[in-house]
Design a protein around this nucleic acid. Structure first.
Lengths: 241, 241
DNA sequence: CGCGGTGTTGAGACCTGTCAAGACGTGTGG
DNA sequence: CCACACGTCTTGACAGGTCTCAACACCGCG
């Protein structure tokens, strides 16, 4: 099985890929690396020579606050290109860090450049992928601006369920969620204490369980309802013919 | 002077454009329209046939909440492609509305398609532009998650100052800011009442004036300081050779 | 066995929201 | 030209959600 099978799964949802195209994507990868928890993979401002494809594990785009806190701006799971936008931007406005031990693959920008010049459909596909990332970012903006603590967490759990399903990382109604409550609080812009209380409320409402870093959704309808979750923004459909 | 001069100014900051390329961009436009305040230009979910280039006025990407409020997710000023991401996404996950009387130009997706196939550098440029939009969105996520009411507003004013300067819509330390306090509150995820009080505090600190829909920054250093504003995320530099 | 990170609980403070009323200003119709 | 209506801005009192600070429990690991 291909090293980047998970990434291909994700890509195939948005575009039918020919064998040639899949091979071209495969050829993007120059090397793979293992990174440790809390490793900073890309620092903001640093000039980039390659983009990071996440093979396994969890990465986060983060920004530090003046008070030394950290905000997680977007999460990445297996199959995601974590900083494909760095190909056009040349440097990132945020850091890219590992939340768990992770396996990553490097795609040199030269190779990406060649790929998009030779494969217009793939150019379109990767442009689309960064636009989907942006749609997720919009949804997070909306969450922070308008959703309550409970709804924010519920929404995050719904989003991850959908995204992990594509990555084949969901079993039944459960998935591994290796983030601490502190890290969850960095995702939703709350304090760890309040996340703790909010989780208890979600649990006692019978919507979820979360123990030993594993999340189970007991009531999908209920969870989606309080999150006001509508998966449309994830664009899980064929968009490129 | 070209109809799309403001857009070209914005583009030229990120890439040196040949006469041929500028002509190609010019050719994107099929027609122009005038829209009225509060007009919905694009509705979420609607299949798109063209993208909107804003020639003059103010547009906003918006999402309605269940309680009938509205969140502004991103603002667009003259020279912006307001929904270029719609070219790859096929439909939007948000609405696009006019906040003021605005003049817009339509760029049929067929034309965009032809442009990016024939001009790899421009393909790169427009991919970059949507990635810069995403960077702005990230900054807004960060604002909503971590900045106080005062800092959020201050940050917005700093951002608009930079973006309007490119659009040649800044005079000295002032620019027209035609949004009501209610609309400002929709940008920053606060209530109109609290925005009112926060504005008073910014005024009495001697940082800004805002009257008759015109904003003047009295103390750039001070405003940036409480906003913790760093313009890096706007990528105001040559990124494509 | 002890330690550090993580999770939990309580009490009180603070920021922002809610509700309500009035002031201001501008455009419109009589 | 005035009267009125409507949107916007302003102010006050109070409520509520989230934060802060602090302490303690739990647990895996060295």
């Amino acid at each position: 099985m291909s090293l980047i099978e998970t990434h291909l799964r994700k890509a195939r949802i948005r575009a039918a890929l020919s064998a040639k195209e899949e091979a071209a994507i495969e050829n993007l990868i120059s090397e793979t690396r293992q990174v440790r928890t809390n490793a900073t993979i890309v620092r903001h401002g640093e000039i980039l020579k390659h983009s990071i494809l996440l093979l396994d594990g969890w990465l986060a785009r983060t920004r530090d606050t003046s008070k030394g806190e950290r905000q997680i701006l977007e999460l990445h799971v297996a199959g995601d290109f974590a900083d494909l936008h760095g190909f056009t931007l040349k440097y990132l406005d945020h850091d890219l860090v590992a939340l768990t031990p992770s396996r990553i693959a490097l795609a040199p920008h030269e190779s990406v450049h060649r790929l998009v010049e030779q494969h217009p459909r793939l150019a379109r596909l990767y442009w689309l992928m960064t636009n989907i990332d942006a749609a997720i970012q919009r949804e997070w903006t909306f969450s922070m601006a308008r959703r309550s603590a409970t709804a924010r967490l519920a929404h995050l759990f719904c989003e991850l369920f959908e995204r992990l399903q594509i990555a084949d990382r969901v079993q039944g109604d459960s998935y591994d969620l290796p983030l601490t409550q502190g890290e969850l609080s960095e995702c939703v812009g709350l304090t760890p204490v309040h996340v703790n209380r909010t989780l208890q409320s979600l649990r006692s409402s019978g919507l979820i369980t979360l123990e030993a870093r594993r999340l189970t959704i007991l009531d999908h309808g209920g969870l989606r309802a309080i999150a006001e979750f509508d998966p449309e923004y994830l664009y899980m459909k064929r968009l490129i013919d």
